[in-house]
Design a protein around this nucleic acid. Structure first.
Length: 547
RNA sequence: AGGGGUGUCGCCAAGCGGUAAGGCAUCAGACUUUGACUCUGACAUCCGUAGGUUCAAAUCCUGCCACCCCUGCCA
């Protein structure tokens, strides 16, 4: 038998079950309720469930937990499928809890016949009032000892629409004195006249999660039912249901700590509110921690998966540093993103020994970190822009860019020597004069001259102006008061981008591509706005100078 | 008459009685036609805490402390 090494406690359980012969085939499932979009937190569950499928050559179903029609919608099932595909996971079967409504009804009837469930006429309030408290036992319902025949007739009446919403429920007959609140005769079916996105108006009773989930798992032959920590208390009920229903092969529920990221909103309720109130443009707004938001922002799917893998799986509540996610994004983009030059705060540089109107073309690699990289041409001319911060009259210690009389390499082109500075009334530089050094381009005899620094630049007449959206993620403290969001949206309109790289951007097919703007950040081409290209910042580069 | 969980470096996380892996972050240095990347080095005498068992404990036992979850006809 193949030897497996487990990376976390869940995989360890799986390995043990394989080695002990308890299971020969592993089956997991990802069970979202279609009531919202998937966010980065879900990717951890995805990573665990599909990770086990892939690692142990097993199967994993996508099953929508659609037992509460009042909250669910097809819009959500479509988006969930799209996001899972984006991550590159392939589910074996696409199923819905609602597929089993018929079977679940039958199992409920079986429970009644076995004396393990009863119809209760209590109102929701009465049930609450008799449930007891954390420290005191509950009281048994007066309907608890109805005859099997009566229960059967009443339950069928519930199904047939003879009773008003909320007037009757089916309860499991377990133990009103249990210290576990979930075992105090939990409701397993309620009367609810709501249109279901799949079964329409066929049903007016719907099973509760605690009843539907274990049955769905068991029917599908799930071996390991992985969920989050808050369901630990439900495990006895989960086991009770599969046992009472008489399943031969009973799945094992395993719980792990959900993913939290420092300063990041993960609550579906808040995210929905942000969307509904129009504070963001939609679920896929690039500031959102949703998978589609991150996709829109330019995060590579592989980076998200790598992040989940680095976070690990355990049972301790934790908050992961968002820097880890950004690291994974940078790591991925560093290998894949083409480089482009951009100047955000331009300072005019006049290269005196290039005649007016003359241009010099240089070929530069798109991505020096990639062996299969293509090249593109950049055009040097008499007047170019460099970043304001790349020249200073008063260099601080360790400053290695341009100073008066100093040398500087224009990336991909020549080394230039500073000769003069034009200043405004306040003594601030408004333009600098330089001379390029002959034969200092790559391969030239003077190319090896040592210069302190290399900077990006754009030709004045060959640059394209675009817009940069420097989105920051929505911050948690921002939504503490939902009426007063501060969205941290910064829009910088700037002089940009070396023309050679910019031209093709207007072709639709080029959108979505990520670039590293030299010495600033990774950006993604997003759209055209007011005739200008719009870039979203994906993530910043590490910058040890600006610290 | 409460129950169920968790506590190992700033943030995650291995560890399963034999004397504290790894990653992120941080700091220092090297390299560099991106102050990026890469590379090198530093970074827990200590594992919530107090006792106990043992030749030996983060790992076993006992008490205590802290935090999380549970009183939906939500999932």
């Amino acid at each position: 038998m193949e030897k497996y090494e487990s990376n976390n406690f869940i995989e360890e359980i799986v390995v043990n079950d394989l080695e002990s012969g308890k299971h020969t085939d592993i089956y997991t499932r990802f069970p979202p309720e279609p009531n919202g979009y998937l966010h980065i937190g879900h990717s951890k569950s995805l990573s665990i469930n599909f990770g086990i499928k892939e690692k142990f050559n097993g199967k994993c179903n996508l099953r929508f937990d659609d037992t509460n029609p009042t909250k669910e919608d097809v819009e959500y099932v479509d988006s969930i499928k799209e996001d899972i595909r984006w991550l590159g996971y392939e589910w074996d079967e696409e199923l819905y809890a609602s597929d089993y409504f018929g079977k679940m009804y039958e199992y409920a009837v079986k429970l009644i016949k076995d004396g393990k469930a009863y119809v209760c006429d209590y109102s929701a309030e009465q049930i609450r009032d008799t449930r007891g408290t954390l420290k005191e036992p509950g009281q048994e319902s007066p309907y608890r000892n109805r005859t099997i025949e009566e229960n059967l007739a009443l339950f069928e009446g519930m199904k047939n629409g003879e009773f008003a919403d909320g007037s009757k429920v089916l309860r499991a007959k377990i133990d009103m004195a249990s210290p576990n609140m979930n075992m105090r005769d939990p409701v397993i079916y309620r009367v609810l006249r709501a249109h279901h996105h799949r079964t329409g108006d066929q049903w007016c009773i719907y099973p509760m999660y605690d009843f539907a989930h274990p049955i769905s798992d068991a029917i599908e032959g799930i071996t390991h039912s992985i969920c989050t920590l808050e369901f630990e208390d439900h495990r006895p009920l989960y086991d009770w249901v599969t046992e009472a229903c008489g399943f031969e092969k009973r799945p094992r529920q395993i719980e792990f700590a959900r993913l939290n990221i420092k300063n990041t909103i993960m609550s579906k309720r808040y995210l929905k509110k942000l969307v509904d109130t129009g504070f963001v443009s939609g679920w896929n707004d690039p500031r959102m921690p949703t998978l589609c938001g991150m996709r829109e922002r330019g995060y590579p799917a592989e980076a998200v998966k790598e992040f989940c893998s680095r976070v690990g799986v355990a049972k301790a509540n934790s908050e992961v540093d968002p820097a880890l996610l950004e690291f994974c994004v940078r790591e991925n983009l560093n290998a894949s993103a083409d480089r482009a030059m951009v100047v955000e705060n331009p300072l005019l540089m006049i290269i005196d020994n290039i005649p007016e109107g003359e241009t010099i073309e240089f070929s530069v690699v798109d991505n020096p970190n990639s062996e299969s990289s293509g090249t593109h041409n950049v055009i040097l001319e008499r007047e170019v822009y460099i970043e304001k911060t790349d020249f200073t009259l008063n260099p601080p210690p360790k400053y290695n860019r341009l100073v008066e009389g100093g040398l500087l390499r224009l990336r991909g082109a020549y080394i230039v020597r500073h000769v003069a500075t034009e200043k405004d009334a306040n003594g601030e530089p408004i333009a600098i004069h330089c001379e390029y050094i002959e034969d200092s381009a790559q391969g030239g005899v003077n190319a090896k001259i040592k210069v302190k620094g290399t900077v990006q630049w754009v030709g004045k007449n060959h640059a394209v102006e675009c817009k940069l959206y420097k989105y920051d993620s929505l911050l948690k403290d921002v939504v503490d008061d939902v009426t007063d969001f501060n969205l941290r949206l910064n829009e910088d309109s700037l002089q940009v981008v070396d023309g050679a790289k910019a031209e093709p951007f207007v072709n639709a097919g080029e959108f979505g591509k990520a670039y590293q703007f030299m010495r600033s950040a990774y950006y993604k081409k997003a759209k055209v706005e007011d005739g200008k290209m719009v870039f979203y910042r994906i993530v910043s580069l590490k910058d040890s100078f600006n610290k």
